[in-house]
Design a protein around this nucleic acid. Sequence first.
DNA 1: ATATAAAACTTTAAGCTTGAAATATCTTGC
DNA 2: GCAAGATATTTCAAGCTTAAAGTTTTATAT
Lengths: 156, 156
Amino acid sequence: MVAGPLPAPSGPGKDRLRLWIRLLRASRTIEAELRERLKKEFDTTLPRFDVMAALYRAPEGMLMSDLSRFLLVSNGNVTGIVDRLVSEGLVARARRNGDRRTSMVRLTEEGTKSFATIAAAHEGWIGELLGKVSEEDARRLTGMLTSFRSNWEGRE
Amino acid sequence: MVAGPLPAPSGPGKDRLRLWIRLLRASRTIEAELRERLKKEFDTTLPRFDVMAALYRAPEGMLMSDLSRFLLVSNGNVTGIVDRLVSEGLVARARRNGDRRTSMVRLTEEGTKSFATIAAAHEGWIGELLGKVSEEDARRLTGMLTSFRSNWEGRE
DNA sequence: ATATAAAACTTTAAGCTTGAAATATCTTGC
DNA sequence: GCAAGATATTTCAAGCTTAAAGTTTTATAT
C-alpha cells in the first residue's frame, strides 16, 4: 500500500496508482510526525485530538453516531476513545430526556481549554510540515481533493 | 484531525491546515474502502497487503528493518504481521550466515501467486476510486506530493 | 396493545500500532 | 582477547481499530 521504489510501473492506470501511493505516504509521514509531537509535547494521541477537535466545533455537543460518522471511524472505536477522555475529565456525556438511547458528548471546560492550547501548536506544526507547499498550490491541491471526495461521499 | 465542516477557518496558514485535513480525509476514505474490499474479496488486510507488496518488489528478500523503514511503521509492528504471514505460508524467514541477528524475509511461491492476484484487483480498485481524477491531474498532484515529501525525507 | 423492526450505543474478539524494554549478535577500541 | 557500544530483532503493555454480536430504547404496523 505504501510505495514502490524500484520498478516504476507504467501503463494505463498507473498514474492513478502512483498518485494513491504518494498520497498515502504523504499522509502517513505527516501523521507519524504529528502523533510523535502530540505524545511528546502534550502526552496525548491523534485519535483523542480528532475527537476533541470535532467536539470543539460543536459546543452544543454531538451524538456518538455523529462523531463516528464525522471522523470516519467505527462506533465501537469512538466509544473507547470517549471513555478514556471522560475518565480524564476532558469530555462529558449528558443523558438526554428525549431519547434515552443517546447521549450528548461535549468538551468539559478543562477539555476546551486543553484543546485550544494543543490546537494552536498543531496549526503551527502543519504550517511547518507543509511549509514547502505554496499557499497557491495548497488551494489548488485542496480543490482537487475536494472534488475527488465529492465523488465518493454518500456512498456505501 | 479529520475535518471541520462548519466554521471554515480563515487567516494566514489556514490554507495549509485545510489542505492537510482534505489530504487526511481523502486517504482515510480510500483506505477504508480498500480495507473493506480486501477483507470481503480476499479475506486479508491492508497491513498484510503492504508487507507483501514490499516483498513482491524484492525477490531476493528484505530485512525486517528494511521493511519497517520502507513501510513507515515500527519494528515491532512488522514482526507481528510477518509472523502471521509466515503462519499462513505466504512468507518465509531465512536465517543468514553472515549475520545471525538478521533474517531475509521473502514471499513464498504461494505468497507470490496470491499477491499477484490481489494486486491486479487492487490496481483496478484504485483506477475506479480515483476515476474522477484525470491522468493529467494525477501526474500534477503526484509531482506536488513528491516535492513535499522530499522536504521531509531523511529527517529525524 | 403488541409484536416487529429500526436506531443508538456498547461489548467482544482479533488484529494493528506504537514506544520502550529486553535479547542476541556483531563491531570497535584498547 | 575483551569490554563497551552499536545493530537487528523480538517482546511487552497500552491503546487504537474494525466487524460482528448484543443491549436498550424508540418507532411502526397491525
